[in-house]
Structure formats: structure tokens, C-alpha cells
Amino acid sequence: MIKNKSTIKTNQELDNEEIALSVKNISKIYKKNNKDYVALEDVSFDVRKGEIFGVVGESGSGKSTLAKQITRLETPNNGQIIVNNRDITNLKGREIRNIYKDIQMVFQDPIGSFDPRLTIGKSIDELLKNNKVPKEMRRKKTIELLELVGLDEQYIDKYPREMSGGQCQRAAIAKALSTEPSILICDEITSALDVSIQGQVISLLKKLREHNKMTYLFVCHDLALVELICDNIIVLNKGNIVESGDAKEIINNPMHPYTKLLVSSIFPISDEKWSIPDIVTDEVENNNCCKFYNRCKLRSDNCKNTKPQLKNVGKNHFVKCHNI
């Protein structure tokens, strides 16, 4: 059981009516070889309606695990997930299926998100049918959804294997929009695409935000892209939020050692002390140790023995580090 319960707000204090998604003290623990593996630890943040909220970190930092808890593909061990003022943490069966009218997820592998036996049109039609859209209206609605994401009517009869990655990702977004969700979770949706296609997908997301007032949770490791599209972000390291707040402020003025390493991998930082260590030494892992201790060049005994807490270091900027 994880006892540390620090609650943060990545935005200024919000009224409940302004919040689309509230994640409160979420923790996820997996069993591996009869040992507990903490994938998420006490993660909290709020996402405003109409906001593009980024979740960044290296592979294995907990980004996709967090997305799975929010969409209830998995059940968290602790905490609450509140969507449009409704607590969905412990919903089961039909109640979980009903939440997908409000929240949808677009995955990294667009082709893999479709049933290969069905055409794109049929895949979308199935969701519309489940959402009680009358049969006589479903084809028209499918065409409208495809056109919304820049695909014309011919794609209704195409199979996923007959489309490019960019076309298939657009179709995946159209499919997700078929339930008219208020929140769209994008899990590394541009990582498998060419740069030019990435730009098209990002432009599409911005257009949908303006026209449909969509709220996005944008899971991504590409900090340049995050700076371009996101309003606020959290930075995850080993399932912990180490920095949070305004996206441009954090990427242009990173303060946590881990965030500095992420930023320096994209935008070189002249300060040598933030370079990534060649060898990780003095492995330490205990409940009170900073999760970044083994890789940090500024570590001290305090970092080894006392778990840091998130603290406010400026307007909408929070950092979890003893040395800040």
C-alpha cells in the first residue's frame, strides 16, 4: 500500500464545472515474480475542458499505464478518476461501456486498432450501432466522420491494410469520434508516422479542438511536439510526477534533473552537469528514495533517505526535487 498522498494542481484552482478530467492520487501496482512493481505512484492532476494536456516521459515511465487507468482498460489500486464530475473508478460491466460515450482513446498503432476483417466503414458503423444511431442514418454519419478527418467517401469501403499509416490514423480518430466523446486520449499517436504526416494529424487535432471543443490527453515522448500543441503537461519518471505545469514554461525552463535530461536530448543544454550518465552506479531503491536518485549527478544522502514532494516554484510550475 502506498501511503504518500500529495495532491497537486497543474492548473490554477478550477471550479468543478471547468474540469473535464480529474485524476486523484492514482496508483497502479503489478505483480512480477512475486514482487510488487509500482507502475504509478500517487499521480494527481486536473484537465480543463477544451485543454490539450500532455503526459511526457521515457519509455517505461508510466505514460501508457496512466492512459489505461483513465480509460478503465485497467483498474487502479488506489485513487479516483473523475470524468465530467462523475467518479468512474469502480464502474463495472455495462457502466464501463457507457463511459466510452464520454471518453475515447486513439492508439499508437492505427492499423492494429481496427478489426482486419472489417472495412473502415463497417468498423465505424459497429460503434454507431452500439451507440443507438438508427440504421438509415449510419452511412451518412460515417461519411461525415471520415470527411471531418480529411478522408473522402471512397475510404468507407477500404480495409485498414489498404491504407497508409497516416490515412489509417485519421480513420482511427474518426472511429473514436463516432461516440461524440468530450475527451480524446491520444497515446503516442504520431510516433509511427512520417514528419509530414505528423503535421497533418496535429493540424487535425487542433481543428477538432476548435470546432468540437474537444479535450485531449496527449501522451507523447516528443517534447518538441508537446511544446507545439499542449497547454499544460506532467513529466513522469518511474510512475511519479516530477514536474508539472505550463508546457512552454517547463520545456523552455526545465528545473527537475530528469526533465532537463529529457529536454537536452531534443534541445542541447550547454551545462555539462545535466548530460546523461554513461553508467548507472550505486543502485538504490527503497520506499523513501527519490526515484531519480540512481541517475542524478546532484544526488545527496537526503535524496536517498527522504522522498521529495511536489512544490510550487512559480506560476503554474511544480517540481519534485530536494535541490530546487
Rank of each mutant, 00 (worst) to 15 (best):
N77E: 04
Q154F: 12
S27R: 11
S244W: 09
I241G: 01
L146P: 10
A20S: 12
S275G: 02
E126N: 05
Q167A: 05
S244T: 09
R299V: 04
E243F: 10
L118A: 10
H322K: 11
V226L: 06
Q108N: 05
N286L: 01
C220P: 02
I202W: 06
R295C: 05
E188V: 00
E51V: 01
Y30E: 07
G93K: 06
I124M: 04
A247N: 00
C290L: 12
E285M: 06
S270R: 13
I241S: 01
E227D: 13
V43Y: 08
Y100H: 15
V43A: 06
R161T: 08
G239F: 11
G165N: 03
E162K: 10
D42S: 13
N84S: 06
S182W: 01
R209T: 00
V56C: 05
S196M: 05
I269S: 11
V195Q: 10
I173A: 02
C168I: 07
V38S: 06
K320N: 01
D194I: 07
S6Q: 15
I202R: 06
T7C: 03
V106N: 04
I88V: 15
S244P: 06
K135P: 09
N237S: 09
L205V: 01
F292I: 02
I111T: 14
D157E: 13
N16P: 00
I276D: 07
L262Y: 09
E272G: 02
R117K: 08
N4C: 05
N232A: 00
C220W: 04
A20P: 01
D222A: 00
T65C: 07
K122A: 13
V263G: 08
Y100L: 08
L184H: 13
V319K: 07
S123G: 12
E144W: 03
R299Q: 03
K24P: 03
V195R: 11
A39S: 14
D152V: 02
E13K: 06
R72D: 06
I82M: 00
E153W: 08
C321N: 05
G199T: 02
N323P: 05
S203A: 14
S300T: 14
